[in-house]
Structure formats: structure tokens, C-alpha cells
Design a binder for these strands. Structure first.
Lengths: 232, 232
DNA sequence: TGACACAGTTGATCATTGTCAATGCGCCAT
DNA sequence: ATGGCGCATTGACAATGATCAACTGTGTCA
């Protein structure tokens, strides 16, 4: 019984990352059911690595609860955060030789792990679904291009405003209030700026009445319109 | 006869973008042959658009001669260049609803155009090849992540040095001398800096003896080692 | 040959952002 | 409570890069 409940949770997570792409595709539900049978749930403590850059990309991972961060570090100590992953987001889909980043647990979390080999076998049974597989990757690629655009064209403050709007959308669940699972340093490394610049950005937005900050991590967007035009 | 020669050229281009991923895959050569039959060659004048951001992504494009630039512009006039494409590079593989960028001809060029629908049909005949299809997308994704890393972590001068090393590698054909097909403004928009900063970067590298510049577009890398450590 | 257009370079100045250092705040263990 | 630790904020200053403007060089066309 407890196992059944687990499978329902897994299916929900799978549906949330594949569902929108496989909508109205023949066999999509059966595909997700079968995938859920092969999925494993693994727990990670905050700060642990789910996988590392050099690992062979054997699995696809989906946070079921908690958050992950995709990052790449250099020997010289600098770090680029590529993405933050929340419930139902997906990592490791299109790596070939090795992962091109590491995945680190931002919080204690439960992660769904799916063998890519097994997923491939299941794809063979659902050719209509397999054909749409690329859409998922294409979607991820377009998200990264958006990020590249922002990095190349926007100022530090604009990037931060943009980031907060993204977090509001993804964490706010319809409201304007959300709890950030990452530190200021993580945000800075994601947006390609120093910790201090990120912090000043928060302070500035608070002073101008665009956001409210309680306890550093609890953010409320007070003026969506202005924040959008600020992010411009 | 002239048609046969054309097909050979097309196959060469196709092989150069798929070959490395489909190496030792069953049916890879037959797949490329069949793809070449469906490929069309289309000429573009310098400055023309091969496709635009909002277009439905019906085709995949591969420059056969000449160069393309993938870019996204805003209403406010700013522009991000995502990539430069040379002979045998590939654009439009994993777009779903629309292209997420426009492709502009940097020079007069001949571009191979392949219908994605037809390519899909051919994939159905070569399942071993189809399974490796993802590797191509995965490779592109990892290139974009590299670019994102550079944008987030490196200074303007470092980004320029990195860019020149990339161009040397891709255009130099084993030598240290190459002809840039893009303007300083294009480079600046690719690297997220102003035209002037890009120009100063060139001057600086020339003054320090790391590169030689003839006629603005002919570049020779004089000291590879130093350029690499400069790009660090 | 000269006038013009165009792309790139260079200089001066200013705004943005990074760096270093000091301070503040909440949390935990003693 | 108190001290210490981790993280964030703030301030002062320096460095980087953007902007505006002048100038150079090259090619084209009349």
C-alpha cells in the first residue's frame, strides 16, 4: 500500500516533467506508468552530490521533494551555476560521454532516479512517445539560450530582477511569496556576479518597495509590474 | 554528373556533422546517403536570413560553404549572438514550437536544407542511428553550457582570447592563421561586450605580441601558449 | 583625384561591478 | 545569557567596461 502511494507520487513527478510535451501522444500514460515502475527514489542530504561532472551519464534524475543545483567548478575555485531544479524538473537527459556539470542537493531531498538504458528500452515500446523525446531536450536547450541571452545583454540588477521573477513563477505556486532554497552566493554564481552585488541588488529592490525580505530567504514580490519593467 | 558531384559534397558536409556521433553505428553510412538524397542546396547573400526566430522549425540547416550566425534581437535594439556556424556545423536540430533564434548569413553561402519530417522518416528505417540522434543534441547543449560558463566567469579580455582560440581551432585548419567572417560588432554581441571593448581587446593582444592582425579580418595567433593562459 | 561612406581604433570620462574590510544578525552549543 | 560561527549586509575604494566623441584607414564612386 505504501509502495502504491510511492508510485503515485513518482508518476506525478514524471507527469510534471514529461506530461506537457507528451500531451495527446499515443501511449504517453502507459509510458509514464512503465517508467514509474523502473524509477527508484533516493535521498540526499543537503550539500551532497547527486552526480558529478565526470560521471558516466547512466541515469536521469528528477527531484521529487527538495531542490538541486547544477554547477561546474574550476580548479581555480570559480563556479558557474547552470540551473536550479525543483520538484518535477529534470537533469541528465541529453548527456553523452559524461555529465557536463555536477548536481548538488540544495536541501535534503528525495530524487527519482531512472536508468537511461531502461528508459531507452521503454521508448522502443512506445515509438510515438520516443519521437517526442526530443521536444523535452529542445525545451531545456531553449531555456539555456534564454539564460545566455540574459547573461550577455542584461546588467547585474536586471539579471537579479529576472531571477526573482523566475523564482516567483516556479516557487510561488500562484502567490507572490516564496522561500528561496539557495544562498546569496549560489544566486551570485548563477547570475555571474559577486556575492556583494547580489546582496546589494536585494537591498535595492527592497528599499524601492519592489520586494519584501523576511529572514533572508522568504521573499515576497510586492510590485510585479515594476519588477518586470526593472528586469526589462 | 554535376549532380553526383553535388551529392558527394552534401555527403561530406553531413558526415562532418553527424559522422563523429554515428561512428561505428549500424547503418550510419546508409542513413547519411539517404539523407543526402533529400537534402537541398540553397544560396543566400550576405546579410540575408536563412530562417527567423518565429518561423516554424521545419528544416535543419548545414552550411556547405560560407558562414552563418545564430542571433536573437530585442525590440530595444540589443542583440545576442548565440553561435557562429561554419561548414559542416548544424542549426535547428532540436527546436520544437519555433526556432529560438534567427540564422543570418555572415557571407554569401550555400546552405544544405533538410526537412525534419523527412529526416524523421529516415530515422524510422535506421533505429540504431535514431538512438544516437540525441548525442548530437547533447553535444550542442554542452557547447552552449561552455559558452554560458565563459559568459558568467570570465572577463571581457579573457572571453575574447577564448573566442580567438576557438576560431583558430575551427577556421585555422591546422595552421595559426585564419580569416574571420564576422565584424567586430558581431564578436562583441557574441561575447556580451561593447564594440569598443572588443576592439581594444584585439589591439591589446596585438601589442602584447600574442596575435597579428592584417586587414582587420586576417588573424594569426603568434603565441598559442600565452593566449591560452591569457584566456585561462 | 577627391569626397564620401564605412568599419575600426583610440581617447576621455563615467557608471557599473568587483574587492577588501568592517559590521550586523540569527542560530546553536555551552 | 554569552560567545562563536555562518551568512548577509554595508561601506570605501579600485578595476573593469560602457559611452560618447574624435580620428584613422580603406575602398568606392563620381
Amino acid at each position: 500500500m505504501s509502495l502504491d502511494i510511492n508510485k503515485v507520487v513518482i508518476k506525478t513527478s514524471l507527469a510534471s516533467c514529461f506530461g506537457s510535451h507528451f500531451k495527446e501522444v499515443e501511449g504517453a500514460n502507459a509510458f509514464i506508468d512503465e517508467l514509474a515502475q523502473d524509477a527508484e527514489e533516493i535521498s540526499f542530504e543537503q550539500g551532497e552530490y547527486v552526480f558529478r561532472e565526470k560521471d558516466a551519464p547512466e541515469y536521469v534524475y528528477i527531484p521529487e521533494s527538495g531542490s538541486l543545483m547544477l554547477e561546474r567548478s574550476t580548479a581555480s575555485g570559480s563556479r558557474q551555476v547552470f540551473a536550479f531544479l525543483f520538484t518535477g524538473n529534470l537533469a541528465g537527459l541529453s548527456e553523452s560521454v559524461s555529465y557536463s556539470f555536477s548536481a548538488k542537493a540544495l536541501t535534503n531531498c528525495v530524487v527519482i532516479r531512472i536508468s537511461r538504458k531502461l528508459m531507452q528500452d521503454i521508448f522502443d515500446k512506445y515509438p510515438s512517445v520516443a519521437k517526442r523525446y526530443h521536444d523535452v531536450t529542445g525545451h531545456i536547450l531553449s531555456l539555456i539560450l534564454d539564460q545566455l541571452f540574459i547573461m550577455g545583454q542584461k546588467s547585474a540588477h536586471q539579471r537579479l530582477a529576472h531571477f526573482l521573477l523566475d523564482m516567483e513563477h516556479r516557487l510561488g505556486r500562484g502567490t507572490h511569496r516564496f522561500l528561496l532554497p539557495m544562498s546569496r552566493q549560489d544566486i551570485a554564481d548563477y547570475l555571474g556576479m559577486s556575492l556583494e552585488t547580489a546582496s546589494r541588488g536585494f537591498s535595492r529592490l527592497k528599499k524601492d518597495g519592489l520586494i519584501d525580505i523576511e529572514s533572508n530567504y522568504h521573499i515576497t514580490v510586492l510590485d510585479n509590474e515594476k519588477l518586470i519593467s526593472y528586469a526589462d
